[in-house]
Amino acid sequence: MTALTPGFADPVLDAQAAFRAVLEAMSRPGRVQRAGAGLAPPAPLMPAAAAVLLALADSGTPLVHDGGEDADAWLRFHAGAPVSPTLAEAAFVLATGAPPALSALGTGTEEEPERGATLVVQVASLAEGDGWRLIGPGIEREHRLAVEGLPPGFVQAWTANRALFPRGVDVVLCAGEHLAALPRGITIAEG
């Protein structure tokens, strides 16, 4: 157990900036935003993923993560989110390693699809202009997003998640200080 590193230097304005980055990412899926500059969360947490959770998670949002002891202590202290008893009940799921199956997460109900979980996944890299072809709300024609570090089969799992719409899981992909989002209504075509 190492000494706790600080959270947001300015809890109010840094949280606002991180939220706006996520809002922009959700509104324009596939566009890469910056968040978490200056944050030094314990490994394996990356700045962008840490900023997303500090900005959005709190005592009202059960969290599941695979970040280990140091990350757990850091998230408990700075965000205060309770540990979810099961994956399906978590409002936020953070995957620093291989993400859990999308079908194992809460997807909401037909009447309350907003209860679907938000999955924050750390990946090796994110880049615009290449890779996946994304279409759907928020995208004028087509956005391209290249993601390194997702397990094989993610796109198939996403297609199944997309088919649940309006139910489903929303994903925030984080790499270092960069993030991009995949809201549930987005269709991914490979290559």
Binding site: M26, P166, D170
Partner: peptide
């Protein structure tokens, strides 16, 4: 959190 879910649906 509500706004982000609203944008997603």
């Amino acid at each position: 959190r509500t706004i982000l879910k609203a944008v997603a649906i």
